[in-house]
């Protein structure tokens, strides 16, 4: 991977997007096991229906992990300083998580060069599911 340089990026630049496979029950079961989040609403249809949901739905933190991959695909993880997000919509089965990031600010802090990114995870219909920002240090 060629290192992203502070001098070579500009406010308004988009970082390479990350498009995942459609969310399936299998995806959610794996994530439940791997994350340790065993909330049955994500894996047990009977439970989901009792909670008046039409079906199980994705863990918010699964899409958050995809946003994490969006960042670590772009720069080595140790350059990430801050990463925050709001869960703005429920990711349903069959949704295709699509993560995008845009540089909104270049600045210096704590003696290093940093950029602020606006990040977003949407589905294939452009409906926003997660929105947030990240601060990344660049050489």
């Amino acid at each position: 991977m060629t290192q992203v340089q502070y001098s070579s990026v500009n406010v308004g630049d988009e970082i390479p997007l990350l498009k995942e496979k459609p969310v399936s029950r299998f995806t959610l079961t794996l994530y439940a096991g791997a994350s340790g989040d065993h909330n049955p609403i994500h894996i047990d249809l009977d439970f989901a229906r009792k909670a008046r949901m039409p079906d199980v739905f994705a863990h918010g933190m699964l899409s958050a992990a995809y946003l994490g991959r969006l960042l670590t695909n772009w720069v080595p993880q140790r350059q990430i300083r801050n990463f925050s997000m709001r869960f703005t919509g429920i990711t349903q089965l069959g949704n295709v998580p699509t993560c995008t990031g845009k540089i909104v600010e270049k600045f210096e802090a704590d003696g290093e060069k940093r950029v602020r990114l606006q990040i977003r995870c949407s589905n294939q219909y452009g409906e926003e599911k997660l929105a947030g920002e990240a601060i990344v240090a660049l050489p």
Binding site: N82, M85, F87
Partner: peptide, 9 residues
């Protein structure tokens, strides 16, 4: 539901 999440590393 999970509403917000933030990390400072």
């Amino acid at each position: 539901l999970h509403a917000e999440q933030a990390f400072d590393y």
